[in-house]
């Protein structure tokens, strides 16, 4: 039994190691910035805040607690969600190049947010939440449309049809976004910067929203590791061994869409996380989703927290769009990983 458990999930040691890795990364990212503080001060301030004590006077507490911590938390949770979505989609669609955006939902969410910004849409009672609410709304509407079209084209709901509809929908939403931008006038700069992705100004409320999405929808994906293994081997094989193929597929797509919708609404389009992180993690854990999914989730958190740190410190005081940073790191790492693998195989 123990042997089976160790073969099928992450070992407690791996959990501990990765958990500590996430916490240390978070601590470093909160400490480092335009004003870098000693790790000890950061730790003490955070601990006091968590215990409900009034923090000491000085610049440290306001910077740490109201600016950096919510931003780092949002980065970690967004990275975790994007990476988990990517890992799940790569297994579900049996395609190592798939990620959360393959389905087209992230383009739909972007369209919603861009529309809200261009039209200056405000939600009564929720200041500055227009783009976020519209992004989530559009993510779900996109999912419904994509699933409806995929089902109308092909009653068997095949993976190929889903990818095809997703790609077509992404292009369609992309052209609508360009159209909105073309007529957006003075909002052009805001929209362009948002579309490159940024976690600047993230709030605790947004962090909480991300946490709920990750806990609910990410949790549902995490317990589906066995089923995703079967999908990654073959959909027909999954049917033969007794998996409810359509239900699991639908569940996974809804979970991915929900997380992508919330993620895009908060951080904009952040590319490459869902592609590169699961890919690298798979090299270490192997393709078994019972190990891959949790490991990719934690590694995604670390990756995006560090990318965000780089985005705000590399050319300080100018801040880089986080999507640009992840794509630069992602693309170069990807090439390096492929080169090393080919070289090793040749040897």
């Amino acid at each position: 039994m123990n042997k089976q458990a160790s073969q099928e999930g992450l070992s407690p040691y791996a959990w501990l190691l990765m958990g500590v890795g996430v916490l240390v990364t978070a601590l470093v990212c909160i400490s480092v910035g335009s004003v870098t503080l000693p790790l000890g001060t950061t730790w003490k301030t955070l601990l006091e805040a968590i215990l409900g004590r009034v923090p000491q006077e000085g610049v440290a507490a306001p910077i740490l607690l109201s600016v950096r911590t919510p931003r780092v938390v949002a980065a970690g949770l967004t990275g975790a969600a994007l990476s988990l979505c990517g890992a799940a989609m790569q297994g579900l669609l049996r395609n190592p190049l798939a990620d959360g955006s393959t389905l087209g939902v992230s383009s739909g969410a972007s369209l919603g947010a861009v529309l809200a910004m261009a039209l200056g849409l405000q939600i009564p009672g929720l200041p500055n939440a227009g783009p976020m609410v519209m992004a989530i709304l559009f993510a779900f509407l996109s999912l419904l449309l994509i699933l409806f079209l995929a089902y109308a084209f092909d009653r068997s709901f095949s993976t190929h049809t889903i990818i095809l509809v997703g790609v077509i929908f992404s292009m369609f939403a992309g052209s609508l976004i360009s159209l909105v931008i073309a007529f957006s006038g003075e909002m052009l700069r805001t929209i362009t910067f948002w579309s490159m992705g940024s976690l600047a100004g993230a709030s605790y409320t947004q962090g909480l929203l991300l946490l709920i999405a990750l806990a609910v929808f990410g949790g549902l994906l995490l317990v589906r590791g066995g089923e995703l293994n079967a999908f990654a081997i073959g959909e027909e094989n999954a049917h033969h061994i007794g998996i409810n193929v359509r239900r699991v597929k639908l569940e996974a797509l809804v979970c991915v869409s929900a997380m992508i919708g919330v993620g895009v609404s908060i951080g904009g389009t952040i590319g490459f996380v869902g592609l590169i992180v699961p890919h690298i993690v798979r090299l270490i854990t192997g393709p078994n989703h019972r190990k891959l999914l949790p490991a990719a989730t934690l590694a995604g958190a670390v990756f995006l927290m560090l990318s965000d740190l780089l985005a705000r410190t590399a050319l300080s005081p100018v801040e880089l769009p986080i999507g640009v940073v992840t794509s630069l790191i992602g693309a170069s790492t990807f090439v390096a990983v492929i080169f090393r693998r080919r070289k090793r195989r040749a040897a």
Binding site: Q4, Q7, E8, G91, R94, N95, P96, G226, N229, A230, A232, I233, G234, N237, I241, R282, G286, P287, N288
Partner: peptide, 14 residues
């Protein structure tokens, strides 16, 4: 057709 490097045992166990 196989795409990922599952072990023999992982496939059989399914």
């Amino acid at each position: 057709a196989l795409h990922y490097a599952f072990t023999v045992e992982e496939v059989v166990r399914l």
